[in-house]
Design a protein around this nucleic acid. Sequence first.
DNA 1: TTAGGGTTAG
Length: 539
Amino acid sequence: MGFGFDVFLQTGLLDFYGKVGELGLARRVFDEMPERDVVARNAMVAALGMNGFLSDARKLFDEMSERTSSSWNTMITCYCKLGDVEAARRIFDYNPMKNVVSWNAMIDGYCKSNQLMLARELFDRAGDLKNAVTWNTMISGYVQYREFGKAISTFQQMQAENVKPTEATMVSLLSACAHLGALDMGNWIHTYIRRQNFKIDVFLGNALVDMYCKCGNMDAALDVFRSLTKRNAYCWSSVIVGLAMHGYGEEAIATFDQMHKEGVKPDHVTFIGLLSACSHSGLVIEGRKYFSEMFEVYRVEPGIEHYSCMVDLLGRAGLLQEALELIKSMPVSANAAVWGSLLRACRIHKDAKLSEQVTDQLLKLDPYDGGNYVFLSNVYASLNRWDEVEICRNLMAEKGVHKTPGCSLIEVDNVVHEFMAGDAAHPQFAQISAFLDDVDKKLKVLGHVPDMESVLHDIDKEEKESAVRYHSERIAVAFGIMSTPRGKPIRVVKNLRACSDCHTVMKLMSKLFTRDIFVRDRNRFHHFRDGSCSCKDYW
DNA sequence: TTAGGGTTAG
């Protein structure tokens, strides 16, 4: 008995070392084992493969006189994790002991290598063999590639086939809701979680917190957060990012201090949240302090996103020179996002001279770099340099880069409706359009003059006006007001930043219709109420 | 005791 128990313990230790990346220690345990059964060999194959020694893993696997289904599945997983999905597929096809784990590992391998079609093909071929993990793999694959609608429809299919969802299913679905801003569905999932008595661990807890933050219900997010018995850096970061998005700068800082007190180490995402919180609330002194502490105290290396937050913070506060100095001191060269932050600040503070200088810097960026096309084209357009705009657009077409079209989402009666800028595809578009015309007339009476600054197309004034009116968030909000009961808050998610004219119109609409309007743009939440916005026009 | 699914930002 004693002998067998030793092997049992040693195998556990070997597995542990393999999983925490201590391959040397794993090897030593393996070499010193008096008896190596198939379980120990499987664990060693996994330890080698997962730590990058695929050929050693393969050699050990090939030498095994006896194999279990785990042996085969370990090889499939190792090949997938190291990016050789074709090799994994060859093992999968050849595997004489194929079981549901083999299918799941292979489907996940396709998902993780951005081959969703192949994943779905296998998923469909798996037929009745599928278990909850198979479904979860497919659903999380869709969420990872931002196919949120497909994730939800796959979940509905899972329910139709009477497969019981698990905590992992809920985590993926909540992530989809967070991205879509689908609060009603998120609430439904939370209720479902309670009814099923699912265990709310750090994964599920964080998914709930994040969903409530991103869907604009900060109170519910904090309720869940406070109820968690265990919180990791993800949970803290989600709350801090959430508070930042809602413009609660002081609260974000207090939360960060609490995180520090509880001994949870912040990561780079935590600092993105913290610094953007300072930025949204104009907390310059605090922002400077945390930026310098992030490496000195917390050993988190500032990345370009953190510099971007700081440029934004300093720029908004009118410290344009300091922002410029910071850009010059960056260890990596600035990208369009960083220069763009400074350019926005120049516009707010009406510094034409620096604006010109920054524009020059922007124009020096590589036009062949995909990320720069759109920004450059807008800069040229603002200077009325239409030839260059044309060149940028042609380059974009040539390279197959397309400008991200403005897109807004709104959930009405458990259905997420999607609107693109100037989009006439929605079945109720005629009514929406008439409604917006009517709103326009009312706003003109109130003295609203459309601001065309953010419509950078070489078109005449009248066309510009209609292009503004049909920005996606405006269509979505109009649709929301038309299709929901009086007094119900409107919640819209937009993929880009709100333009200044839409921002003004939203304020007026919140007063005109006595509605709370929440718009989550790329940067933060705007809560429009009674003619003003929670961002205090500072965004 | 060995094999498969889950979270923050971009």
